[in-house]
């Protein structure tokens, strides 16, 4: 990115003509390509009459969008700020149960409540972050795990919300063929929102501060950055789109159970995607989410929905950490082979 800009200004100074500098032109074409891709995604559900695997296609793409949102959000605290949270699925559960509960008891659609769920999660993140972010490093990671397990116990025993037996949520009133469509669009918007948030954070002074914290917190503090405020803000912000996604996902399941959200395997997936794709980059979690979702599909079709998937997830995570710590995006960037279309940093 910096190369492009430098080159751009260089060309401009050599040729004071009306021609736009090569650098900005490339950024422009990248953005145009991405916009086209997004447009295509918006049009996919319109293939209803034509596509035979319609339901399945929508389902898997919706899942991919959700994980893109989750991984990109996690990346704000886990990637940019370097604070690994293994309990981020608490936001998922909070969003799901909030929207689901409101729908079951008050009849307001989760599609409307989703943004509210997101805001609730931001509030939750601020409160929780204020406590857990008093620690750093290993103690922080441990506290996020404990948090998630406390939440699990809480929801398992919260009879108003169904407890461990679960809460059933009214079905969406649409013909079975089209029932996935609203969720598709909902998650797509959620994913776009999350990635956009990640992008804006990355390119802001706030994001720079977070990365300084990740590199050397003491130096960041000394340089005048209010590390505590920044960390809490990052933690809280990362909860928004996860809460939104939770509201939508819970609704799409039509049945909420704590064990669907509050297991370490779900947390593992968020982390895995961000790392495999490239932590602390904007495009990384997106790539990671797509790869892992695709991989899971293949794996499930080969081995069935068994524990082998879990084992493979573990092995993948270890492999990524040992051999590709910078992830796909990071590794490509190091070798200077990162295609412009993926360079969103």
């Amino acid at each position: 990115m910096a190369d492009e800009l430098a080159q751009g200004s260089g060309v401009a100074s050599r040729q004071p003509s009306a021609e736009r500098p090569a650098g900005t032109r490339r950024v422009g074409s990248r953005n145009a390509l991405l916009s086209c891709a997004v447009l295509v995604l918006f049009c996919v559900p319109l293939t209803y009459p034509v596509l035979t695997t319609y339901s399945y296609t929508l389902q898997i793409m919706t899942t991919a969008f959700m994980w893109i949102a989750l991984a990109s959000s996690w990346n704000i605290i886990g990637g940019y700020a370097g604070y690994i949270s293994l309990g981020h699925n608490v936001f998922l559960a909070a969003g799901a149960y909030f929207a689901g509960g409101v729908f079951a008891y008050q009849g307001v659609s989760p599609f409307i409540m989703a943004p509210v769920a997101g805001l609730l999660c931001v509030l939750l993140g601020t409160l929780v972050g204020a406590i857990t972010l008093r620690t750093s490093g290993p103690a922080f990671i441990i506290s996020t795990i404990a948090l998630m397990l406390i939440a699990r116990i809480l929801f398992d025993n919260w009879d108003y919300l169904g407890g461990s037996n679960g809460l059933s949520v009214p079905l969406l009133d649409l013909e079975t063929g089209l029932i996935k469509v609203p969720f598709y669009y909902g998650m797509l918007l959620c994913a776009i929102g999350a990635v956009y948030l990640s992008y804006r954070v990355r390119h802001s002074k706030f994001g720079l501060g977070l990365r300084a914290i990740a590199e050397d917190e003491v130096k960041a503090e000394v340089a005048g950055i209010d590390t505590r405020a920044y960390k809490i803000a990052a933690f809280a912000l990362s909860g928004f789109f996860i809460g939104v996604a939770g509201a939508l996902w819970g609704y799409s399941l039509f049945y909420l159970r704590p064990e669907a959200f509050l297991t370490l395997a779900v947390a593992a997936d968020m982390v895995l995607m961000a790392i495999v794709g490239g932590r602390a980059t904007v495009a990384g979690p997106v790539i990671g989410a797509i790869l892992i979702v695709a991989f899971n599909e293949i794996s499930v079709s080969q081995f069935g929905n068994s524990e082998i998937n879990l084992a493979i997830t573990g092995v993948l995570l270890m492999g990524a950490l040992l051999f590709f710590p910078a992830g796909v995006v990071g590794a490509l960037r190091e070798r200077r082979r990162l295609p412009r279309i993926l360079d969103w940093d």
Partner: peptide, 26 residues
């Protein structure tokens, strides 16, 4: 020698735990 030693090792052990659980379950 990795610069993010603390995180990396936690995540590595996390992956190991998943792998062991998966193998046992399978």
């Amino acid at each position: 020698d990795s610069p993010r030693f603390g995180e990396m090792t936690v995540l590595l052990s996390f992956g190991l735990a998943l792998a062991l659980e998966g193998s046992l379950g399978a």
